[in-house]
Design a protein around this nucleic acid. Structure first.
Lengths: 225, 225
DNA sequence: AGAAAACTGTACCGCGGGTACAGGAGGGGA
DNA sequence: TCCCCTCCTGTACCCGCGGTACAGTTTTCT
């Protein structure tokens, strides 16, 4: 029972890395069993076909993903009481996390599935959809807390704002991978942070900035308005 | 000679749609020749292997993509003289364009290649990288023009800001496709527009807003600062 | 008319996904 | 101790697909 779980996870580890590099269609079961050191029969004992593998892979990925967000933002929440400041800190921590990945972000399975959709069954597509909706709810919840305290400088829809977080992450991963510039993703997260800060805070430095409005606006205005 | 081009393009049309739905690995040459109404030999007369097909597909996609951006932003430039206003209009036009796609955005080949990389040769990976760099240069050029007139509210790196446009587009496509919500992409583009406007303009409505700073800041401050 | 371009047809190869089973090692409970 | 259940291994086989080879045919341009 325990041994089986372990083998299964080893297969999933190997499969995840391969799929993120080559897509599902580009990943052969053959290579997975070679790298895992298992036989073909052994593989099919754990997963009855490729679709089942994909399902397990995606579910595990999403769970792990959720866990990471939970950790980061709850840690940020422990350090900062203000919802905005805690969210901004969370983004900072997130940018550091992705910056520290040795070979850059390996890729997002949700995006992989998205660009492979038609070959999977409804269930996988639904799982994927729900993962994105969970992000929307997660970040939406955080933005609602923020909006209970801060009024946004511009009228924005909370869900769309929440989706912006997912967009920048997904897009940043694509850019980072394509450019082979590992730090691009972290930079994009920090750009998003600037967006959020700018949306809810009146000026650049800290929440204590109120006294400096004139100075800051003076600068901006002299810049061309 | 002319006939050949036409057939080739028909194959590319069919292939592009299929690849965006199922990825390269999930798209069989078999199905392409069936849908195109050509024979296998005919296919290999035009493309010596799948890699060559991918190369042609990607190049054509990128060219078309560039053409669309050229059109949109040059049209915006004709209507607005101010670089910021013209860029903001361009984003508006872009959001309308993607909102009008009947079944939502079909997907971005650059992202597809990004999530399939290892199975292609260096040349394709370089082409893909250059496409993203071209976006960076394009939007970077536009932001530099803007910055010659406007001072950003927060210090930002031009390249990172330019990448933000690509990120939101790529990410928005992933979200839109995964959620099966065609309008999500358009909404994300408009969120990006809000970001850019907020970054370079002092307040919500127009460049003439300077008189209302107190009122706006009053609102924010009463909200929790 | 003739050459080149643009195919069709046929036959074949190897790889990978997948199926079908038979059987074996090893641990845990009766 | 025996048996059963989990967790595999080994073998054999099918088929779809990518790809090759090449001969022959039609279409198109000059």
């Amino acid at each position: 029972m325990r041994k089986g779980e372990e083998t299964r996870n080893r297969i999933l580890d190997v499969a995840e890395a391969a799929v993120l590099q080559k897509g599902f269609g580009g990943t052969s079961i053959e290579e997975l069993i070679v790298e895992t050191g298992i036989t073909k029969s052994g593989f099919f004992y754990h997963f009855k076909d490729k679709n089942e593998l994909a399902k397990a892979l995606l579910n595990r990925y999403i769970e792990n993903d959720e866990r990471i967000y939970d950790e980061i933002f709850s840690r940020a929440r422990d350090l900062m009481d203000d919802p905005l400041q805690s969210f901004l800190l969370g983004l900072k921590l997130l940018s550091e996390l992705v910056a520290d990945l040795p070979n850059g972000h390996p890729g997002c399975l949700v995006a992989t599935v998205c660009y492979y959709e038609r070959l999977f069954d409804r269930e996988i597509q639904e799982t994927n959809r729900n993962a994105v909706l969970a992000w929307r709810r997660r970040f939406g919840r955080m933005f609602r807390e923020i909006m209970a305290v801060y009024t946004p400088r511009e009228p924005v829809d909370v869900d769309q704002l929440a989706d912006m977080v997912s967009s920048v992450l997904e897009g940043g991963i694509v850019l980072s991978k394509t450019l082979k510039e590992p730090n691009t993703l972290a930079e994009q997260v920090l750009m998003l942070r600037i967006f959020v800060r700018m949306l809810f805070l009146p000026a650049i430095e800290s929440p204590l900035v109120a006294v400096r409005h004139d100075q800051i606006y003076g600068t901006v205005r002299s810049g061309g308005l």
